[in-house]
Design a protein around this nucleic acid. Structure first.
Lengths: 139, 139
DNA sequence: CTACAACTTCAAGTTAACTTTAAGTCAAGT
DNA sequence: ACTTGACTTAAAGTTAACTTGAAGTTGTAG
């Protein structure tokens, strides 16, 4: 596949594809003249990358998880660690979601004054500030 | 409270506090001479901001949600929209988490070749690429 | 075979969210 | 009175993740 075809199929722009290749996140299978040629399984790889991005991982973390080459042995401990991080994040997001939903329905004059909202937020916020930093640190 | 006290209590650096104030995310209650003075409820506000950041919101979005001033009427539709976005994100993260957990346990030679992993990832990835862009777009 | 759209590289520009630096202000302890 | 250390502003620097621009190359339709 040519780069434009990959771009269309994946929704990832050609410039981003070149950027990802430069970063080692994807690989072209070769060249036809000067032009890159991709195999179709780059699409799957791109989905995984998008998934990782959506999950809040940096490109560097993603390359750590997926492996930069066709590296078959992935660090299982790292994966579990990442899974646990995700689980933590999910809990926070759920609390946040509940908080937002309540805030939308609540008739208290200010959300910051609504006890239910505050309880939800406090639950969610417990350790969040450190958590944000911590999640970034566990590389 | 002086800025250093807020910084210590919140874990947010003084420079970030000034930056947040500049952006209208927090407010100092006044000045003593040239120095900012904060009321203790800025801490709560900072927790909410941290929570929002952890949930993947931009500072701009957060100020949209929390209100830049002591704006008591928040856009309820926006909150629900954000709650729904969060719910979508949660689903993706859960899928990712399950995928990672399986990958850690799976003995297939390559995760990309493991049918269970691929099924999980495909499930999770459905619409993710557009989703990432879409979530950014809904400002 | 020539025009041209689609590629290429490399460098520079962009945005978000901060941090760092430089230069100055001020309250307090010695 | 003077030094010190925590503050101040304004501007510039940083990093991630891209995008854009300039200048050159090439496969292919006419």
């Amino acid at each position: 596949m040519e780069i434009s075809r990959v771009a269309k199929k994946s929704g990832v722009s050609a410039s981003t594809l070149r950027f990802y290749e430069e970063k080692g996140l994807i690989k072209s299978i070769g060249r036809q003249g000067i032009r890159r040629v991709f195999s179709s399984n780059v699409l799957e790889r791109l989905e995984l990358i998008a998934l990782g991005r959506a999950a809040g991982f940096s490109l560097e973390e993603i390359s750590g998880i997926l492996g930069t080459d066709a590296k078959p042995d992935i660090d299982r401990d790292l994966l579990l660690k990442k899974a646990n991080e995700l689980d933590e994040t999910v809990k926070k997001l759920e609390a946040m979601r509940d908080g937002l939903q309540h805030a939308a329905a609540c008739t208290a004059p200010s959300h910051l004054e609504c006890p239910r909202f505050r309880r939800l937020m406090n639950l969610a916020a417990a350790g969040v500030i450190e958590g944000v930093a911590a999640n970034k640190t566990i590389k």
